[in-house]
C-alpha cells in the first residue's frame, strides 16, 4: 500500500455533510468544505459554536454522527469516519498532526522535550538514538527553543514554549495536514505574537496545509488564506480571510468583527 502517490486531482481533505450530535444537542451540523494542499483554513466563531467539535471529528478523536471526512493519503482517498481503527491510528500518528489548546493534553509532561519530539519518530520505527537526537535538536531550533533545553521536562517550560514544543512534536514526521485547536488562547499577547511568527515561518517554508480553529480574528487573519465563520454548529459564511474580515456580509460576522477591541 505504501509508496502510492496520492491523486493530485483530488483535494487533500474533503469534509462532506459532517454532523455531530451530543444526544439531542447539536455539536455541528451539515458541514461541507474542501482543503487543497498548501492551504490554510481558519475556522472562527464564538465559544460553543462547534469549532472544536468539528476539528475533533476531522482528527478522528470523536465519532461523527453522520457524514464523511475524506483524506487524500498514501493509502488512497480514505474516509476517516469509516476506515478501520488501525489505519486511522496510523494516519493520525504519521500524516495528521493535532495541536491541542492545552499543551498538557498534547505533550507527555513527564518526558523531556527531546523525548516528546522523538516519540512520533520512534512510533514510526526509528531505532537510532543519535539520529532521533539530531532531528529533535533541529526541530527545537526551528520552533525557537534553546537547544540546551532538550533534556528539560515540559513542565519547566513557559506556556508559549510548551505550545511551540507541541508544534515541533507534531511536525517532526512531516504530516500532510496539521489541525490546530486554539493554539494561541491562554497566552499573553507578546507570546502569541512570537508563536504566530514561528507558525507563519513554518507555513511558508514547509508549505503546510492547516486547519486553524480560533476565536481570535487577528490570529485567523495573520495565518489563514480562507475563513469559515461558524454559528450554532453551522457554517454561516465563508470566503477569503481579508474579504470576510473587511467586508462581512452576514449580520453574525459583522457582529464578530465589530466586537474586537481596538486599543
Amino acid at each position: 500500500m505504501t509508496g502510492n502517490v496520492p491523486d493530485k486531482s483530488l483535494p487533500l481533505l474533503k469534509v462532506q455533510n459532517l454532523s455531530k450530535f451530543y444526544g439531542k444537542n447539536m455539536g455541528c451540523h451539515d458541514i461541507n468544505f474542501e482543503l487543497a494542499e498548501g492551504e490554510v483554513i481558519g475556522v472562527v466563531g464564538e465559544s460553543g459554536s462547534g469549532k472544536s467539535t468539528l476539528l475533533k471529528c476531522i482528527a478522528g478523536k470523536i465519532n461523527t454522527t453522520n457524514g464523511s471526512v475524506f483524506f487524500n493519503s498514501l493509502y488512497g482517498f480514505v474516509d476517516l469516519c469509516q476506515c478501520d481503527e488501525l489505519l486511522l491510528r496510523q494516519l493520525t500518528r504519521t500524516q495528521i498532526g493535532y495541536v491541542t489548546q492545552n499543551s498538557v493534553d498534547g505533550l507527555r509532561m513527564n518526558i523531556s522535550a527531546g523525548g516528546n519530539i522523538g516519540e512520533r519518530l520512534m512510533a514510526n520505527g526509528m531505532r537510532n538514538y543519535s539520529q532521533i537526537r539530531k532531528i529533535a535538536l533541529e526541530w527545537l531550533e526551528k520552533v525557537e527553543i534553546e537547544t540546551n533545553r532538550i533534556d528539560d521536562l515540559p513542565t519547566t517550560f513557559s506556556g508559549g514554549m510548551q505550545q511551540r514544543l507541541q508544534i515541533a512534536a507534531n511536525l517532526v514526521t512531516d504530516p500532510k495536514i496539521i489541525l490546530m485547536d486554539e493554539p494561541t488562547s491562554g497566552l499573553d499577547v507578546s507570546v502569541q505574537a512570537r508563536l504566530i511568527d514561528v507558525l507563519r515561518k513554518l507555513v511558508s517554508r514547509l508549505r503546510l496545509s492547516m486547519i486553524l480553529v480560533t476565536h481570535d480574528l487577528a490570529v485567523a487573519r495573520m495565518l489563514s488564506h480562507r475563513l469559515y465563520v461558524m454559528k450554532e454548529g453551522k457554517i454561516v459564511e465563508s470566503g477569503l480571510s481579508d474579504q470576510i474580515l473587511d467586508d462581512p456580509r452576514e449580520p453574525y460576522t459583522q457582529l464578530l468583527v465589530s466586537s474586537v477591541l481596538k486599543p
Binding site: 522523538g118 516519540e119 512510533a123 533534556d151
Partner: peptide, 22 residues
C-alpha cells in the same frame, strides 16, 4: 490494550530514549 492489539510499540522506546538522554 489497544497499543498491544495494534503492536504500537514505538512509544516504548521513549523510555529507553529518556534513559540515554539522562
Amino acid at each position: 490494550a489497544k497499543m498491544h492489539a495494534f503492536s504500537e510499540y514505538g512509544t516504548m522506546y521513549v523510555k529507553l530514549y529518556e534513559d540515554i538522554a539522562r
